[in-house]
Design a protein around this nucleic acid. Structure first.
Length: 713
RNA sequence: GGCGAGGUAGCUCAGUUGGUUAGAGCACAGGAUUCAUAACCCUGAGGUCCCGGGUUCAAAUCCCGGUCUCGCUACCA
């Protein structure tokens, strides 16, 4: 493959509504950083961009929860996330943010460009508007009777039953799914990205051209989308937080966050160019630029389907690869910040790195372990025991120990200097060592080019292992005992130590992309400048000059003690338990919205008058039958006795209760809710459920069994 | 429910287009050693390749069915 002229590497924009955990780190940022460091060691022209994604509805919602403004939320999290990355050695060339005016400008320009050339389905027309919800209705929010097959649950964009693509206007008797009312028509402009126009392009580009070099999960996911039939996707939204729609008719609308966020890669590149007095254009326009997106698997569709279509329409280059990682679990369960079951980067940094606890080397320990279990082909699992084993068993015992014993011996046996070589005494062991270094360099290079970072790192550690074996065979400490009797002893020692030192220099170069702080420290030990770490130097055995005196030995890593991981495990369980207690403690708080948010309490809805409440007819009912609805994961079909009648009611609780367990239970029913059909079954009423912040559901019911049909007020 | 990706040693994972006895590291057991952070080095034990069929001289690998995990999607009035 021809070497690209330049590289543009992106890592998924973290959503700025909270702290990010080590699963995020392992999924996108660490692999991207390793790749970038490798490229930079080769003196390639590379720009590594990232930034905070600060738009979308979740930010204003988070603001309401915390009793503050959207701006305050992003201003709080953006700098923390940025600093966390720095502390862990994730070295972006630019960490930008989508709230920046430059981004707004860039996203606007992008939108206007597509719009002006008719690449968006720009329709100014009458559209359905829900007067009660005071919003225009996207196609999906309208249901009605299909003009094709008569199915009465057809969506505004497609009939599920006959599969026919529809527009809302075609539906007979349309109904808003928000309020249940018939929508009214109102003039508006909506913009869609017609993905359906680009099916052929995507099929050829991904399923043919990249079927082999992209990861199977990525191609598979794309295939699923493409063959499922692509639909136009709305690119605007009624919201006031985000990038304003920059064309006529765009008042009160912003770009949908998924449309604006990836453009953040472009605006970040622009900002980098401004900061460094460079030109950003070739990075997005020159086909000789290699663009790679590092993401997690939940982001595949945006980076492989939607954003490429946008780039193509806008005249930009397409990604060469999108190495998406799977997910990383933690101690047997999914990582979740809200459940307290996670390790935030911020926490790890504060505990392990900042204190006199090992400092930067502990950042490399985390990088090492995370990369050694990187979820490249399937979900993986972080355990503290695994962390300890990887650090103590490989980093300390193999890698750091090799360097340390080399340094100690060198000071004891060769006067703290790089000894000279006695060529006449070089044997096949010495040759083999040199050959191993060259081979390892080739392997590591090839693996990095294929985004196999886990295996690449293993090869580097393995080279240190070979170093230990070499030293063991040569036994310079034994030779030292025979200097009196063996005239060649010192020369043999010199040769051995020379080889060991040159190997150390090579190890520094090869480990640098993975463990940059360690490589730096090794340079310090060797008294060389960082320039020595350039990739082309690997494979050479003349990196350290003969006679050069080196520094005293220093340990690269410390061991992780049993008590430390026991503490972490206890902490993790305590965190999870604390979150759980907070969430279950639903006592109304009187100390402000922030406290409420911490307890996972939803904000209060607007006040209503008694008459509003009086419209709701609540009754006690008894579940007499319960069964799962076919072809629906969450729905249970219940038959509920209300005293005067038995009714069928559907409820989305199948994930939480077994049908047989809830028969006979009393529940609270909204008895006068308009009937609604779901999955072909009519539901006449609604079961009231309480939900805690973990999403766990509880029935709301009388404390003692009372007559079915009793009223509640 | 539809689609996609996975299921290989106690753990983390490799296994190219089917081809000897299925590999590596960690952990474990035994041995050797002392320069080194009780580190290193050598040897060993350890597997129904998720289950059931099928194709083939030959299946971890290909086909069909099932099952479990994860993701996307639908459905949660």
């Amino acid at each position: 493959m021809k070497t690209p002229k330049r590289y543009l590497i992106t890592a998924a924009l973290p959503y700025a509504n909270g702290l990010k955990h080590i699963g995020h780190l392992a999924g996108a940022y660490l692999p991207a950083d390793i790749y970038v460091r490798y490229l930079k060691a080769q003196n390639r022209e590379v720009v590594f961009v990232c930034g905070s994604d600060e738009h979308g509805t979740a930010i204003p919602i988070q603001a309401t929860k915390e009793g503050t403004t959207a701006q305050a939320i992003i201003d709080k999290y953006h700098p923390i996330i940025e600093q966390n990355f720095k502390d862990l050695g994730i070295e972006f060339d630019i960490y930008h943010r989508t709230s920046d005016p430059l981004h707004h400008e860039t996203a606007s320009e992008f939108f206007k460009d597509l719009e002006s050339r008719g690449d968006l389905e720009t329709k100014t027309s009458e559209q359905y508007f829900d007067a009660q919800a005071n919003t225009f209705l996207a196609d999906r929010y309208i249901k009605g009777t299909c003009p094709n097959c008569g199915h009465d649950e057809a969506y505004g964009d497609q009939c599920e039953k006959c599969g026919k693509s529809l527009s809302p206007e075609e539906l007979i008797n349309p109904v808003s799914t928000l309020s249940g009312n018939a929508p009214i028509k109102k003039e508006t402009t909506h913009w869609y990205l017609p993905l359906n126009r680009h099916e052929d392009f995507l099929r050829k580009w991904i399923l043919e051209e990249h079927a082999q070099d992209w990861r199977p999960a990525v191609v598979g996911q794309c295939k699923s989308w493409i063959e499922g039939g692509l639909q136009p996707r709305a690119v605007t939204r009624d919201l006031d937080w985000g990038v304003k729609v920059p064309v006529a008719g765009g008042d009160g609308k912003v770009l949908y966050v998924w449309f604006d966020a990836p453009i953040g890669y472009i605006s970040a590149t622009k900002q980098w160019a401004i900061n460094n007095d460079k030109d950003w254009k070739p990075f997005w326009n020159d086909p000789e630029t290699k663009l790679v997106h590092f993401i997690g698997k939940d982001n595949i569709v945006f980076h492989c389907i939607i954003f490429p279509v946008m780039l193509k329409l806008h005249g930009n280059i397409l990604p060469e690869n999108v190495p998406a990682n799977e997910f990383m679990n933690l101690e047997g369960d999914k990582m979740s910040t809200s459940r307290g079951w996670s390790i935030e980067m911020d926490d790890y940094i504060n505990k392990w790195i900042k204190k006199e606890n090992g400092g930067e080397s502990l950042a490399d320990c985390l990088r090492f372990y995370l990369n050694s279990i990187a979820p490249e082909s399937k979900d993986s699992e972080f355990t503290w025991k695994g962390f300890q084993d990887a650090v103590n068993g490989e980093l300390v015992s193999i890698f750091a120990n090799y360097v340390n014993r080399t340094w100690v011996l060198m000071h004891k046996l060769t006067n703290g200097k790089v000894p000279k070589i006695h060529t006449e005494l070089l044997d096949e062991e010495d040759q083999a060592l040199l050959l191993s270094v060259k081979e390892t360099k080739e392997k590591v290079t090839a693996l990095l080019e294929q985004y196999k970072f886990r295996e690449a790192q293993f090869e580097v550690v393995n080279l240190a292992r070979l170093g230990n074996q070499y030293m063991q065979k040569k036994e310079p400490w034994i030779l030292a005992k025979h200097i009196e009797t063996d005239p060649t002893a010192q020369a043999k020692i010199d040769n051995c130590m020379h080889g060991c030192l040159q190997l150390s220099a090579n190890l520094a170069i090869l480990i640098n992309p993975f463990l940059p702080f360690t490589a730096k420290k090794m340079c310090h030990l060797m008294k060389v400048v960082p320039k020595m770490l350039e990739w082309e130097n690997a494979g050479n055995f003349n990196l350290l000059k003969v006679g050069y005196s080196l520094r005293a030995p220093e340990l690269l890593f410390r061991k992780i003690e049993d008590e430390e991981i026991a503490t972490e495990l206890a902490q993790l369980n305590a965190n999870a338990a604390a979150k759980k207690t907070k969430m279950e403690n639903t006592t109304p708080a009187n100390n402000g919205a922030e406290a409420n948010a911490e307890k996972g309490i939803a904000p209060l809805k607007p006040e209503i008058v008694f008459d509003d409440f009086g419209k709701i007819d609540l009754r006690v009912g008894t579940i007499v039958e319960a069964k799962k609805v076919e072809k629906a994961d969450k729905l249970l079909e219940l038959l509920v006795d209300l005293g005067f009648e038995k009714r069928t009611i559907l409820s989305g609780i199948a994930m939480h209760f077994n049908p047989e367990d809830i028969v006979g239970k009393q529940v609270t029913i909204v008895a006068n809710l308009a009937p609604r059909k779901m999955r072909g079954i009519e539901s006449k009423g609604m079961i009231l459920m309480a939900e805690d912040a973990n999403g766990k559901l509880y029935f709301v019911r009388p404390t003692e069994a009372i007559a079915a049909g009793s009223t509640i007020a």
